[in-house]
Amino acid sequence: MLRLIGARLMTTIPSVIGVIIVTFLLTRVLPGDTAAYFAGPAASPEAIAQIRSKLGLDLPLPVQFVSYVKALVQGDLGQSLTTGQPVTADLAQRLPASAELTLAGLLLAMAVALPLGVLAAVKQGSWIDHLCRVVATAGVSLPVFFTGLLLVYVFYFLLGWSPAPLGRLDVFASEPARVTGLYLVDSLLARDGETFRAALAQLILPAVTLAIFSLAPITRMTRASMLAVLGADFVRTARASGLSGGKVIGTYAFRNAMLPVVTTLGMVFSFLLGANVLVEKVFAWPGVGSYAVEALIASDYAPIQGFVLTMAILYVVLNLMIDLLYGVIDPRVRLEG
């Protein structure tokens, strides 16, 4: 197992290098003069040139790249003009909010999608199969920001069941002592039921929004791979040996069907991390996504770059974990490593 982890870690190295090169290129090579931007609209050409040399933008690209990587290794992603803080600090402070939202959305989606997909495959052609098809098509068709707004209108404005879509806690609740940064976990650790309920109330709508969005690919893949596996020869063997329905579907079919689903999780995370930005904007959620959107509006480049890079590295790590999970399920991969 250790060897497998080592082997997988090795395969992520080219991805990380690629990610760093692309984020570097996005800021340094493409049009848009960073120096002119830093100098402000009223600056004279001389002032711009001065800033350029101060930022090292007049050096050859490879040299710039080396200093970029050096800064990166020290965790330096530059300064945010809007907050006046180092970008790294800003991101670290806001990341738990995004993580809590994304995880809640994903867990919710899986809790619905897996049983739905399995049932749809097992009872092919039944009402649950049709429901599954509707969910799968409707889910991918709903723009995630639109779903969020609809939910807000119905549950906040019309029904008044949920609090105002303004962040992680309403103004009267106090933040729990920071341990993980995830309010639900921290409030439980602090045995603070009230904060927990308040945080949960705020989390439900955005999490549901994300879940609706990521429901579709998981359901679709679960159903499809379950159908494929149910038609496989080894399931026929299991049936012909008289194994009970539960055993055939649970032990034989489901575990095999999970392999493509686990692979799909990579794509789902890609969707989730992107959709997160939109959902955070709709719900004024103080995560890294809304941080990036604010920076975009203010044309503040360092935070955007830092955000893109952080998300990419995070995504690479998530994919690594998915790979390892795959290895746990599939012995063929395990022994190959």
Partner: peptide
């Protein structure tokens, strides 16, 4: 393959944000 892998290493919408922010 390498180009495709590098693009896939990003969450796609986030990469699109970065590209439009950089290109204008």
């Amino acid at each position: 393959g390498r180009i495709a892998d590098t693009i896939m290493a990003f969450p796609l919408f986030v990469l699109a944000m970065g590209i439009v922010a950089a290109l204008g």
